[in-house]
Amino acid sequence: MIQIKNISLSYEKELVLDNISCDIPNGQNICFWGPSGSGKSSLLKLLMGFEIPDSGEIIIDNIRVNDENINEIRKKLAWIPQNINLPVNNTKELIELLYLDKRQQQNFNNYITKLKLDESLLSKDFQEISGGQKQRIVIAAVLSLDKPVLLMDEPTSALDADSVDSLINLILKNSDLTVISASHDKKWADANDLILQLDKS
């Protein structure tokens, strides 16, 4: 269970999140939904300890997110940011970058199939494949880490309609993961178990 309790956050005196609370049971999916600047990404960063709230607390599996527990908390989390520029040229380098062990590499190959990616893409240079294909390879690599909670920022931003469908089926419909995402994609948001709507005001 992930509990967000009365969280407020401000950047240089500008209030971004005001007294936000919600409970996310294990295995449920939630989408933080709202316009740009409504604090969706900030809420994800708070879960990972990249932002510290002005007030309130976050508890993940009965462990409070603070400077003493943060490493233990992060072991439970996997994170896919939006438009990340990875210093890798191909899949092999991506696997090395994430230190995937043999079991995780086997997971990776399974996710590649489930995400309907052609295995021949794996031997290609990232410059030769599309942004959407590269994003799905990165998603497969992060999923293969086998962590119980997956955080995603705008997961569908570089994907076409078919790829969005296969991602929804794989991650939101057919997995035990707790998926927490920030998105303004209506189709993606509607496929979640829960939606937390955030307003700019």
Partner: peptide, 26 residues
């Protein structure tokens, strides 16, 4: 400049050292 990459590796690889290795190597 590439803070996103550092945070991506910090969460996904569980180790502060692993997150810094690409920057140190470069």
């Amino acid at each position: 400049k590439e803070e996103n990459l550092y945070y991506f590796l910090l969460v996904n690889t569980n180790e502060n050292k692993n997150a810094l290795l690409p920057f140190i190597g470069k």
